[in-house]
Design a protein around this nucleic acid. Structure first.
Length: 911
RNA sequence: GCGGAGGUGGCGGAAUGGCAGACGCGCUGGACUUAGGAUCCAGUGGGUAAAACCGUGCGGGUUCAAGUCCCGCCCUCCGCACCA
C-alpha cells in the first residue's frame, strides 16, 4: 500500500471518544423485555493473535449490536477469555525446553489477552468490557468449581474407572467428542482433535458428568430450536445423542463348567447338574427378527466374559483371553474401522425366550458396549451378523419376507435382507408386519418379564478429568477413611498454585506439588489428598454466558434476577466446529442451572448463527528436492529463478494457518486500510454463514467506497450546510425523487437484514449504490456554493441531498462506525451518530412516479414500457401492445391471454 | 452407508415464481497526467454488423412465466459412521 495514504486518519480519534463516553448496559434484575438484547459471539482462546476466525464473528456481532443500540435497545455484547487450556501450557513447556527462564502459562495467557484486546479495540468493536471474564482467574473458576460441587451433590458428577482416550503427545485424556477420525496412507485411525496424534486407550479413575441423564431433554429441546438454529447443528446434535427405540430381550444363558468353544457347536444335553442359569439381556431394534437368531454375541468388555473365563476349559480360556486382550488394546473406534469381524466361541449356549432354541454365545469384536453390550445375531437380516456368520460358517435363518407389492429380491445366502417386511417361520407372529411384530413382541416380553421396549442413546457421560496443569482444579478430596469428599463450599476456590513444575510426565503436575496435594479431610480431619486432576476446559466455557449477566458478583455465581433480565442469549454467533462439543455441553449446563433454580429457561441460546470460515489459498511446491508450503512471494522468486515449474505447485483452499503460510493478518490490514475498510470487506465478501476465501484485492472495493463517500461528503458539505427547515408543501423534482428512493431502499434493506437473515453484503451493496446515486445527482443538479436562504430555488434538491447523506451515515454506522461518525459530524451532526435513532423508511419515498415495466411475449422479454406508477391495468395493456418490438413478435398471432402483474411484468401470450 | 450444505460470468456474489448476473473485483477503451499499480468517464455472460438465438451442474415435469416449485440423476465440500 502506498506511503502517501492519508485516508482514513480519524479512526483512533473516535475510538478514544467512544471509550470516554461509553455507558454500561443497564442490568437491573427483572423480566426480560423486547428491548433487552443479549448478543454474544463465542469467546476466544487467547492465542495472542487475532485472526480472521475472530474478525468475522466479532465484526458481525458488533454491527448487529450497534444497530440494536440505535434502535433503542438495551444491548449486552460482552467479551471474555477461554483462558485455560493446553496451547499455553504446551508453549510454556517448549519455552522451558529451549532454556527460557520465568516462563509460565499464566503469563503467556495474560500477555496474549492484552495483545488481543488491543487488536479488538483497533477494529472498533463495542464490547461491554466491564463484564470481561477470564476463565483462568479464581473469581471465575471458583464458580466453575461450585457448579461441579452442585453436580456432585445431585449425582451428576461422579467418579468411575473407565477406559478413556489418551493422547500420548498432550499426555492427557480426551472426551469421546474430542477424538477425530484421521486418514493417513489409506488407513484411518483415531486422533487427538488438538494435535492429531493417534490416541490410545487407557484405564483410569476419572470424574464424569452424567450428561446422559439429560439425553432426552437435550434431544427434545432441539425441536424448539428447529427454526432458530441451523439444521446443520441440530441434526448433528441429534445424531450425536443418537436415540434409538428398541427392545431388550432376556436370553437365559447356561453357564457350564468345562465348556469348550472348540469343535462343533452343539448344545449340551438336558440337565447338566453343573449348569448355572443367568440372564443375558440383548438390545435390538429388530425384535421382529427374533425367530431368526442363530447365535448371540457379546462385547469383549462385557462383564459376563469374566464369568465365562472361570468356567471354560483351558484352551478356550486362552483363546478368549488373547482375543479380548488384543481387541481392547485398540481404541473403540479403531476397532470399528478394522474390516475383519472376528470372534471366539465361548462354548456357552443361550436360550431364545421366544422359541426356546439353544444357540451358541460368541465374544465378538464388532459388538460394542452400547445398549447392553450384547446382541442377538440374525445373519439373514443384518449385514454385520451376516458377515460374521459367513466367516464362521454359522447358520442363517430367514424370518422376514418382502412386504406385498415389494419387488425386493431376497437371497440370504448372498446378502442379508435388512428391510422390514412380513414375518415367516416366526411362530405366533408369522404373518405380522415387522412393525406390528416389534410392538407385539415388545409387549409380550414385558408381560413375561423377560425384557420389553427400551430407548437407548449413543451419547456417553462426559469424562472431564485431565492430567494437566493449566486448568480448573477439581474441588474434591480423597480421604483414606471417608473416601471421596467434596471441598466445602466455604473453602472455594481451590486455587491453582503458580509454582508447579508443569513439564509433562504423564502424571498430573499437581500430584508433585505437596502443598497443593496434602490437605486435611473436611469430614474427619485426617491427612488426605486433593484430587490433582484439572477439568476439561470445555467445562469452563459451558456456563460463561451466564456469568456475563452478573460478572462482578463475588457472593454468588450470578444473581438469578440479572440472568433472567438477559437470558436466553438472543443471538449466539460462532463457528460450526462447535456444533456438537461446546453447544451440547453449554445446553447441558444451562439445563442443570435451570434445575437448581438459577435460570428461567432450559435453553441458553434462542437463536444460533453459525458463521463460515475465511480460508486462504495455500501453495505447496512438490519437486524432487522439496515438498513444502511456500508463501506467494517465495513462490514468485522460485519461479523467477527457474527452480520451480508452474506444474509443480499445488494450490489449495484451506483453513488459514501459520504452517501453511496461507494466512492474512487482519491487524496488519487494519493498519493499512483502516478498520472500517476491513470490517466492510469481511461482511461484503458474501453471506457470513458461508465459507469464503480471503483475497487481498477484495478490500479495494470497500476501501474505495469509503473513500468516495468521504470525499463526496466533504466536497458536498457546503451544499447542505445551514439549510432552512423545509415546509410540508415542498415539491421535489424527479432527480430528487430518484435519490430519495435509493436512500429509503437502503433503509428498508438494512432494517430487513438486521432483523432477519443478516445478509449484510446486500446492505453494503445498497449503500454503494446510494453513493453512486449521490454522485450522479450532484453532477446532474449542478449544485454549487452555499445555500442562499429560504428563497434559494435549489433548496428542495439540497434538502434531498442532505437527507441522503444523513441516511447513509446512519445506515452505515453499524458497519463502518468510524467513517459514519466522522462524516456525520462533518455534515453538521452535533451529537454522536450512535446517539441518533435508526432511520425509518418513508413509504412515500419508496414509490416512484414513473416505472419501467418489462413486456414479455410468450415468456420472453421483448420490450419495456415506461408509465406512471398509478397507471391502471387497461393503460398497461395498451402501452404494452403499442410497443414496437412487442408488436413485431405478436404479429400474425392471436393473443390468447394477457397477464398483467402490476409493478412487475406484462406477459402477452400469443399463438 | 447415514445426515447436512452447496453447484449462477474470468472471480466474490445478487435475484417475495415475474427483465438472471444487483454490488464489488478483474478486464477493455477513453480522459486527466512528466508518470500511473492514483483518480474520473464509458463498456463488459456467450453470440451477432445488428437482430435472432443460447445461457443458473444434467434429464424430465408443473406454470402465461422456473436459478427459484415437483420428480429422477451427477458432482463438490462438511460432519457421523459396525450404535444391533
Amino acid at each position: 500500500m502506498d506511503e502517501e495514504r492519508r485516508f482514513p486518519d480519524f479512526e483512533q480519534k473516535w475510538q478514544k471518544a467512544w471509550a470516554a463516553s461509553s455507558k454500561p448496559a443497564a442490568d437491573q434484575p427483572g423480566k426480560k423485555t423486547d428491548k433487552d438484547f443479549y448478543i454474544l459471539s463465542m469467546f476466544p482462546y487467547p492465542s495472542g493473535r487475532l485472526h480472521f476466525g475472530h474478525a468475522l464473528p466479532y465484526t458481525l456481532t458488533d454491527s448487529i449490536a450497534r444497530y440494536k443500540r440505535m434502535c433503542g435497545c438495551n444491548v449486552l455484547n460482552p467479551m471474555g477469555w477461554d483462558a485455560f487450556g493446553l496451547p499455553a501450557e504446551n508453549a510454556a513447556i517448549e519455552a522451558v525446553r529451549r532454556g527460557e527462564k520465568n516462563v509460565h502459562p499464566a503469563r503467556m495467557t495474560y500477555d496474549s489477552i492484552e495483545a488481543m484486546r488491543k487488536q479488538m479495540n483497533a477494529f472498533g468493536y463495542s464490547f461491554d468490557w466491564d463484564r470481561e471474564v477470564y476463565t483462568c482467574k479464581p473469581d471465575y473458576y471458583k464458580w466453575t468449581q461450585w457448579l461441579f460441587l452442585k453436580m456432585h451433590e445431585k449425582g451428576i458428577a461422579y467418579r468411575k474407572k473407565a477406559r478413556v482416550n489418551w493422547c500420548p503427545d498432550c499426555k492427557t485424556t480426551l472426551a469421546n467428542e474430542q477424538v477425530e477420525t484421521h486418514v493417513k496412507d489409506g488407513e484411518d485411525f483415531q486422533a487427538c482433535f488438538r494435535c492429531g496424534t493417534p490416541v490410545e486407550p487407557r484405564e483410569i479413575d476419572a470424574w464424569f458428568l452424567a450428561i446422559t441423564k439429560y439425553a432426552d431433554r437435550l434431544l427434545s429441546g432441539l425441536d424448539n430450536l428447529q427454526k432458530s438454529w441451523p439444521e446443520l447443528v441440530t441434526s448433528q446434535q441429534r445424531n450425536w445423542i443418537g436415540r434409538s427405540e428398541g427392545v431388550n430381550i432376556d436370553f437365559t444363558i447356561e453357564l457350564r463348567a468345562g465348556a469348550s468353544g472348540s469343535g462343533p457347536l452343539k448344545p449340551p444335553g438336558e440337565s447338566d447338574p453343573n449348569t448355572q442359569r443367568e440372564t443375558l439381556t440383548v438390545f435390538t431394534t429388530r425384535a421382529d427378527t427374533t425367530f431368526g437368531v442363530t447365535y448371540v454375541a457379546i462385547a469383549p468388555e462385557h462383564p459376563l466374559v469374566d464369568r465365562i473365563l472361570k468356567l471354560v476349559d483351558p484352551r478356550t480360556h486362552k483363546r478368549i483371553t488373547e482375543f479380548v486382550k488384543e481387541t481392547l488394546n485398540m481404541t473403540e473406534q479403531d476397532r470399528a474401522s478394522g474390516d475383519e469381524k472376528e470372534g471366539v466361541a465361548t462354548g456357552m449356549f443361550a436360550v431364545n425366550p421366544l422359541n426356546g432354541e439353544k444357540i451358541p454365545v460368541f465374544v465378538a469384536n464388532y459388538v460394542l458396549m452400547y445398549g447392553t453390550g450384547a446382541v442377538m445375531a440374525v445373519p439373514a437380516h443384518d449385514e454385520r451378523d451376516h458377515e460374521f456368520a459367513r466367516e464362521y460358517r454359522l447358520p442363517m435363518k430367514q424370518v422376514i419376507k418382502p412386504a406385498p407389492g415389494s419387488d425386493d429380491e431376497v437371497n440370504i445366502k448372498q446378502e442379508a435382507y435388512t428391510a422390514q417386511g412380513v414375518l415367516v417361520d416366526s411362530g405366533p407372529y408369522t404373518g405380522s408386519t415387522s412393525a406390528e411384530a416389534i410392538a407385539r413382541i415388545g409387549a409380550d416380553l414385558k408381560s413375561k418379564q423377560s425384557g420389553g421396549p427400551v430407548v437407548n442413546y449413543k451419547l456417553r457421560d462426559w469424562g472431564i478429568s485431565r492430567q494437566r496443569y493449566w486448568g480448573c482444579p477439581i474441588p474434591m478430596i480423597h480421604c483414606a477413611k471417608c473416601g471421596v469428599v467434596p471441598v466445602p463450599e466455604s473453602d472455594l476456590p481451590v486455587t491453582l498454585p503458580d509454582d508447579v513444575d508443569f513439564l509433562p510426565t504423564g502424571r498430573s503436575p499437581l500430584t508433585d506439588h505437596p502443598a497443593f496435594r496434602s490437605v486435611k479431610c473436611p469430614t474427619c480431619g485426617a491427612d488426605a489428598r486433593r484430587d490433582t486432576d484439572t477439568m476439561d476446559t470445555f467445562v469452563d466455557s459451558s456456563w460463561y454466558f451466564l456469568r456475563y449477566t452478573d460478572a462482578r458478583n463475588d457472593k454468588a455465581i450470578f444473581d438469578p434476577g440479572k440472568a433472567a433480565r438477559w437470558t436466553p442469549v438472543d443471538l449466539y454467533v460462532g463457528g460450526r466446529e462447535h456444533a456438537i462439543l461446546h453447544l451440547i455441553y453449554a445446553r447441558f449446563f444451562n439445563m442443570f442451572a435451570h434445575d437448581i433454580g438459577l435460570t428461567a429457561h432450559q435453553e441458553p441460546f434462542a437463536r444460533l448463527y453459525a458463521h463460515g470460515l475465511i480460508q486462504g489459498e495455500s501453495r505447496r511446491v512438490v519437486t524432487d528436492e522439496m515438498d513444502r508450503y511456500v508463501s506467494e512471494d517465495e513462490l514468485q522468486r522460485l519461479v523467477d529463478a527457474g527452480k520451480v515449474e508452474p506444474g509443480q505447485v499445488v494450490r489449495r483452499i484451506e483453513k488459514m494457518s501459520k504452517s501453511k503460510l496461507n494466512g492474512a493478518d487482519p491487524t496488519t490490514l487494519v493498519s493499512q486500510y483502516g478498520a472500517d475498510a476491513l470490517r466492510l470487506t469481511i461482511l461484503f465478501a458474501g453471506p457470513a454463514e458461508s465459507d469464503s476465501v480471503w483475497d487481498n484485492d477484495g478490500i479495494k472495493g470497500p476501501y474505495n467506497f469509503l473513500r468516495r463517500w468521504h470525499d463526496l461528503a466533504l466536497s458536498a458539505a457546503p451544499l447542505v450546510e445551514d439549510l432552512p427547515q423545509m415546509g410540508a408543501d415542498c415539491v421535489i423534482n424527479a432527480a430528487s425523487k430518484k435519490l430519495r428512493y435509493a436512500a429509503h431502499v437502503l433503509v428498508e434493506r438494512a432494517t430487513g437484514e438486521f432483523e432477519g437473515r443478516f445478509a449484510l453484503n446486500t446492505v453494503i451493496a445498497k449503500a454503494m449504490e446510494l453513493v453512486n446515486e449521490i454522485r450522479a445527482f450532484i453532477a446532474a443538479e449542478n449544485l454549487s456554493g452555499p445555500c442562499k436562504g429560504a428563497a434559494d430555488p435549489t433548496l428542495p434538491s439540497r434538502w434531498s441531498l442532505a437527507e441522503a447523506f444523513d441516511i447513509l451515515a446512519r445506515c452505515m454506522a453499524p458497519f463502518a462506525p468510524h467513517t459514519a461518525e466522522e462524516l456525520w459530524h462533518a455534515l453538521g451532526g452535533k451529537q454522536s451518530v450512535f446517539e441518533t435513532t435508526w432511520p425509518k423508511a418513508d413509504p412515500a419515498a419508496l414509490v416512484l412516479d414513473e416505472i419501467e415495466l418489462p413486456v414479455q411475449v410468450n415468456g420472453k422479454v421483448r420490450g419495456t414500457i415506461r408509465l406512471p406508477a398509478t397507471a391502471d391495468k387497461a393503460t398497461m395493456e395498451r402501452l404494452a401492445l403499442e410497443n414496437e418490438n412487442v408488436k413485431k413478435f405478436v404479429e400474425g398471432k392471436a393473443i390468447q391471454k394477457l397477464i398483467v402483474v402490476p409493478g412487475k411484468i406484462i406477459n402477452v401470450v400469443a399463438r
